[in-house]
Design a protein around this nucleic acid. Structure first.
Lengths: 222, 222
DNA sequence: AAATTTAAGTGTATTATTTACATTTAATTT
DNA sequence: AAATTAAATGTAAATAATACACTTAAATTT
């Protein structure tokens, strides 16, 4: 190795995942009881360390898969957190990622293992290190995204009603929305396909189901 | 150190700075001729390694100050880049920051040292590693910022004309803007103070100078 | 002193987007 | 047949974005 490089101290690089889910009412985050020291037994984001042969994106996918068993999850890098004393054991810089997953479809795999548990975003327990700050920033980012591009494909079942989609947006943005204006706006984005099928569980009349037009949805993404 | 931690490989953590400046006509980026191996002599972003006692933000400030001599520069974290082979010498993850500085006020300090040179954003030479990708993403971020909040305080002299501000926006966004609509929009944001003073260099009539209202400008920031 | 030159400064009409707001409809249950 | 339930729907008003061209202030030239 070149001398110039040798002079510098290496650090541990961690990845922490803010895993968002939606349960038809509330935006939730998956937390785990940390099973090693320090702070063993406290609530924490799911995390792990970067391996020599992978990118941070790879590491986030791997860690997410370990917890959820799921491949091909939506993941986006949030930012890196680097307070020198954030982890008291050893200098560790952590890059936070956030993920969106469908709770209903994958609930069994999730909470069995790792003593994982979903918490409403308004109701997060005390967390280790700077994980609360990571969550704060992830929510801010998710809100921003919801305001500029369609979102929800990853958080909803394949077929969903307008009401469900609106509730998801309300949960993300933390505010009530007007039904007519919401529908108008969403339909103008032209990313939904209206199905010939109704969901009959919510009312006597039933409500039409929609699905995302994957191609148009992707084209919309920034 | 705890066993759990010992098992993981440490990496070098670098910081690279995309330094934006504006010369009254073009958006520019400051590059340096790299003075060590590998890739010695090639153009590169200004960078350095994280020290044990500092945050990534601190490191970016320090590195920026080394090159520019300037304190209190606007700096924002872009994201971390982690391809395993991005630096051929040793595994190095780099966190990119972008900075905005006023070229005119600081040109001497800058280009003397470190064989630094300003390049138009449309005209960046081949760079080492993944620095071109970092620049691409930084420009994208800067454009986004310019579209949602006032920008330019850091890139313009203290007093400036509407024409200069418009040219800055045009350089950032890479497109011509309508003069009347631009002024209307900027004034509606209520972050400018019109001075009783004219710049007489650009025309016979002279044009009024403005400055930013620091308090209102900051309140606008996301 | 009048005419010319130069860039600064200004307004309005049109279109698109966002917001506020209430009734009707389809199907089931009683 | 009447009542119930949530779904579905439209319009007017306000705000924001866009397109577009002439007048003005001061210096310079004739």
């Amino acid at each position: 190795m070149k001398d110039h490089y040798r002079a510098h101290k290496k650090v541990l690089l961690a990845v922490d995942c803010i895993i968002f889910g939606f349960d038809q009412d509330n935006l939730k985050i998956l937390l785990i009881k940390r099973d090693f020291e320090p702070e063993k037994g406290k609530w924490s984001l799911m995390g792990g360390f970067l391996r020599p042969d992978e990118t941070l994106d790879d590491a986030a996918s791997r860690i997410l898969q370990k917890l959820t068993g799921l491949h091909d999850i939506y993941l986006d890098q949030l930012r890196s957190f680097s307070q020198p004393e954030r982890d008291p054991v050893d200098r560790t810089v952590s890059t936070a990622y956030y993920a969106l997953i469908n709770i209903e479809e994958h609930n069994e795999e999730l909470t069995k293992k790792h003593s994982a548990e979903w918490f409403n975003v308004q109701d997060i327990p005390p967390l280790i290190f700077d994980h609360d700050e990571m969550i704060r920033q992830a929510i801010k980012r998710l809100r921003y995204k919801a305001s500029v591009e369609p979102i929800g494909f990853e958080l909803l079942p394949e077929k969903f009603t307008m009401r469900q989609l609106q509730k998801l947006y309300e949960a993300i943005l933390g505010q009530k929305l007007d039904k007519r204006n919401f529908i108008k706006k969403i339909l103008s984005q032209d990313v939904l396909i209206k199905l010939d099928e109704k969901d009959m569980t919510s009312s006597k009349k039933g409500s039409f189901l929609y699905k995302f037009d994957a191609e148009k949805y992707d084209r919309f993404k920034i």
